[in-house]
Amino acid sequence: MDRFWNWNQASDHRELTINGIIAKDSWINDDIAPQIFQAELNDGHGPIDLWINSPGGDCTAAGQIYTMLMEYPDDINVKISGIAASAASVIAMAGTTVSMAPPALMMIHNPLTIVGGQEQDLNKAAQMLAETKEAIINAYVLKTNLPREKISTMMDKQTWMNVNKAIQLGFADKMLGEDPNVTNCYSYSEPENQMVMLNKLQPTTKSTIPVKSLQKRLSLLSH
């Protein structure tokens, strides 16, 4: 069994680490590894700190782990220490909160496979990839609230995100070690900073001032 996860429950809180390639041997034909992961997840209670440093791997395994974590009754605090790419980024979306270290990266892209055979075999593989992509988008949308079309385009382009970009787009919530009471406006360009301010104003403001008017006022304030 390929074990890419590890538990540390010696302290007052539960800690789970996912490190390296996710399931070098696919979970599709593996009945043991998913059961062990589920049993270990349920063998305790309370919030879990989930540390991720993975380039990705098997979509099936990532999807199952995502679902198991989403069903866990307590908080899952995802902490990306190095990289959460490809399938690992899907698992990260199960976090109640998602934090990234200052130099950490997240990457999303289209699923891929290797297939051979006749035309109908290639067509089936293409259909499978298309449906797999839609399934992955479901997890990204649930976390970010971004339009499906935008996420699809980001996957087409293979999008890399540093912590500031990930927070801006909703894939992450905060930077590890950052004071939550301090807003570092210098982490964004001027247009991005204005959008962050607008996003904070709009949900709580009962004013009927149009968005374009708010943008104009923010532009004047920034000069």
Rank of each mutant, 00 (worst) to 15 (best):
A10M: 02
I108G: 05
I83D: 14
I108Y: 06
D75Y: 00
G82V: 02
N53F: 02
A39I: 00
A61Q: 05
M106R: 08
A85F: 10
A39M: 05
R14D: 09
I52C: 06
F37H: 03
L50S: 08
M106P: 12
K24F: 04
L50W: 06
M68H: 05
G20S: 07
P47M: 08
G95T: 09
W27I: 02
S54V: 05
M107K: 15
I18V: 13
M100A: 10
P103V: 07
M100R: 13
G20N: 04
S54I: 06
I80E: 05
G56K: 02
A61M: 04
I18H: 08
A94I: 03
D30L: 14
D58S: 12
C59M: 13
S89Q: 07
S89L: 01
V98E: 06
N77G: 03
Q9K: 14
W27R: 08
G56P: 06
A87H: 10
D58K: 05
T60V: 09
P34A: 05
T60C: 03
I22P: 08
T17R: 13
M93A: 12
H13F: 13
L16N: 08
G57T: 07
T67F: 01
A92G: 04
A87N: 04
S81C: 03
T60I: 02
A61L: 03
L50V: 09
D75I: 00
M70E: 11
A62Y: 02
I83K: 13
A84V: 09
S26I: 03
I28G: 00
I91E: 01
R14S: 12
V98P: 11
